[in-house]
Design a protein around this nucleic acid. Structure first.
Lengths: 209, 209, 209, 209
DNA sequence: GATGAATGAGGTTTCATTCAT
DNA sequence: AATGAATGAAACCTCATTCAT
């Protein structure tokens, strides 16, 4: 947690520091990121940095926090609040689309998330052994779907929750890396959702007959 | 590529060095991993290290190579060779199971794979801009499935190939992290395969009637 | 060029560092000179060194610069400014004497000059492909002498300019190495000038008769 | 001095080692020259090197010795032997020309000579405090000239001997560096000799009248 | 005599953090 | 609160030389 001195800073200065820090951490892995550079680009003295933050890790933790907060802000709150008005798949669609929107609009934040995946020590430092929130949330969503009788009651909720989380994460990569696929976000998400719903097996229409 | 001197080493010594190196790189991200420690634990002089390897990156590349080689060795070659005797889903099942077996038996190699996935600079250093082999392979498998008329011809092959790769990767995590789920590997894979095939939507038996 | 931090240092400290550095570089050729030793003797942390200088070469370049500056300061500026009041040989005499004075009072700087003369790679690093200033200057002086009708118009200016530069350089050695010759500087210079002017051939007085 | 083992080597191998060593030392200052490279290029084991030479310095000393020997071989022995048949200036001319020939035909040996000038420690290691042979020799030549009544008896022999040595050294540079001067060697040497003999002062023919 | 692996001292450089002003 | 010089641990890497085979 940054020190009080940091929060007492004029907002513009604070923003500058954060902006510059994100820049550095999005370019280099934790141990390569240099606070010297951050201080320089932010136009503050190196000593000042240590009056705002405990140390390098403190800053990084704070960035992760901001990132999570930001990500949350992309979810359509109203929809969640009134989730009973929506179908499971509509909700899932929204979750996925919000993830994509977030990624598109905050590309520099993505590497920060990845760094955590990369560095166990760091991860534990920040989250301890806490569960992954996304998976939890999607688990609840699945339960809701089962109650709605939209989801196959036989599926293993935690397992599928993980799968859905994972798909969400990779959606960002589909999208972020390949413009070559040349599909717009909505199409991709809809295709994925179709597969999630119906699987990839060929439908034999004669079967039901 | 390690130097000849390395390959001329007595196998036990070579193995020791590799073992120690895997240990270090599985604990720390590339830039934090210390060759000093590796040399020490392997019981060799620091100078010797540089007689075996060009530099730190050289060692790391070699570890990646070993990892890939090892991973390949887990795939059931016979099945692939006679793939026409098998159904698409049987083949996919084997691919997934082999991934799990590999992960179980080489847990320390997993972080090395992750490091690559998350450090683009490193990845490019090693593979250049080469495509991801797994995805390629699963793409071909999908096409084979379509020809077999087992896979829905309408699905987007590259997109689904990615998804399947991703599921494979995460399978490892399901399994590796949670013994709590308390399902044996085969059960997990079978459940996943079912979902991949049929989706998570509730089947309405009345529907077909 | 040293960093600002270096120039902000208290003059005494700055002087100490330079003094110690000159000592090291006057004793050892560039690649043998150790910044570890310099830092130690100067009583600063090794890290501090790198806050003052970019690297070893940066320090060395600076020393060369200082040396040149110092050397310039030994030339009698007034004489040069009013050179038309002087004879060519008077001016040359001054050039030579200033060189000797410089050498006598800054003996430790001499090896630094030699290092440059003999290490082309280093020389190019510092001066690029710039011409030697001394030779240029003496060339101009010779032309002046020709206009004055004091110098034989038939001599090859660039060639002789080189010779004169060279003599200047070696004067320092004559003087510096042998106190045994037991001639004071002025005498040596005057003897040399006589030879430069008249050559070493025996004058046959009968000849002109 | 190389060890006996070295001299017992087949001449071709010996020559190869020396050739390669000259190459390395002509490219890099003593402390940067790597015996690893020499061994490699000479096609011998690093261990073998130490069976031929005491150490790096031992090799270098030997190269210097070879260089001196080679240089001596360029002087016209017959002329020296019958020096009484020649004029002082004819002899000096021969000395200078031989220096130029040596330099032209053995360009790689020049940097080795320069390195000695550069590194006092090295120089002392090799020559101790011995006088410079060239200067000695030219001193004797001058005395001979005086006896011949060709050289001005008033000149300071050691001083002029030094000057002449120096001019010899720089001749190589004139020649070696600048093709731009576009004079052939003989012309340059003759011009220099004229200056050495008669000086650069304008001759006033009216004077003698 | 030949080999080449092993050694380890030593070098340069980086950078998070401290601390005096 | 702000500064920025000072610190020094620690990292990577080089290479002359030794030594066992």
């Amino acid at each position: 947690m940054p020190k009080d001195t940091f929060f007492n800073l004029p907002p513009a200065k604070r923003a500058k520091i954060i902006d510059v820090a994100i820049d550095e951490f999005s370019k280099y892995p934790f141990h390569k990121a240099r606070i010297t550079v951050i201080a320089e680009k932010a136009g503050i003295a190196k000593g000042s940095f240590y009056q705002y933050f405990e140390d390098k890790k403190d800053l990084f933790k704070y960035l992760v926090e901001l990132m999570i907060e930001k990500k949350m802000s992309y979810i359509n709150r109203k929809m969640l609040a009134n989730h009973e008005q929506y179908d499971f798949f509509q909700l899932l669609r929204e979750v996925y689309l919000s993830g994509i929107r977030f990624a598109k609009e905050n590309p520099r934040l993505l590497p920060i998330g990845k760094m955590l995946a990369n560095d166990k020590e760091l991860y534990r430092d920040i989250f301890g052994n806490a569960e992954d929130k996304s998976t939890d949330f999607l688990g609840q969503l699945l339960e809701y779907g089962k109650r709605q009788e939209v989801i196959d009651p036989d599926i293993n909720t935690p397992l599928v929750a993980r799968m859905l989380t994972n798909i969400s994460t990779s959606l960002v990569d589909f999208d972020y890396q390949d413009s070559k696929m040349n599909l717009d976000d909505q199409t991709i998400v809809d295709q994925i959702l179709y597969l999630v719903a119906n699987g990839i097996k060929k439908k034999n229409f004669a079967e039901g007959a």
